[in-house]
Amino acid sequence: MAPKGRVVVFGRGPAAGGILRAALDAGYRAVALKDLRAIQREVPDAAIAVEASAADHLRKREALEAIGNALQPHALLLADALPATAAECAAWTGQPRLCVGYGVVGSLADQRVVELVRSPATYDEAMEKARAFFADLGRETRDVGDRPGLICGRTIAALANEAAWAVTHGVASADDVDRAMQLGTNYPRGPLAWAREVGVDRIVAILENLQRHEGEAYEPAPLLLKMAGKRKETVTR
């Protein structure tokens, strides 16, 4: 078997860590990249560059631009398509043909199926490489349309948001809401505990992406902003 290509994973959260571990386990030479300098140094040697930035939109854009700049013409760029659409991510990279969006909410270890999404410019070949990569990591893939949050992100984020609104409205305490949801439904985790596991800032970023594209219905509850350490913007639009 030919040696597997080099994989670089940019980011810090559970999503980045999970993909890195799975790639190493699958026999890839994989390294984590923490900053822009590491991107400039490592991406030119990479067959697959995975972007899994923290939530912040500006930093995500910066990272995707840097990765796009350093990317080899035959490499694959996998962009985290939960806090921004695949079309947005692809445009930021400047290499939209090589860019495929993917959906991993928390750790890949907890996710058996990975959504893939193309931008209008993505090559078929890039899609095939993306499918092969995740198949190699033992994951099923599904092609989905480029809607904000994809399916995994919008579901987990909207559940956490409704749970947070319920707490905000005094329906029950946060712990009781989680306990009720775990005992009363078929969910593997309480929505708020799940949000903490994924990273509340990431949940907020997914909601803000939904809010930008689909309207105020996705406004993050004050409790989530508080948990994420963010203050509610008071600027009127």
Binding site: I151, L159, E162, A166, V171, A172, M181, T185, Y187
Partner: peptide, 24 residues
Amino acid sequence: TPVVVRDTPGFVVNRVARPYYLEA
């Protein structure tokens, strides 16, 4: 296991579960 909730539409479970269906 009792969970005490306030008298609001859907209480906890039927309310917080809505997005599971609606987002799909």
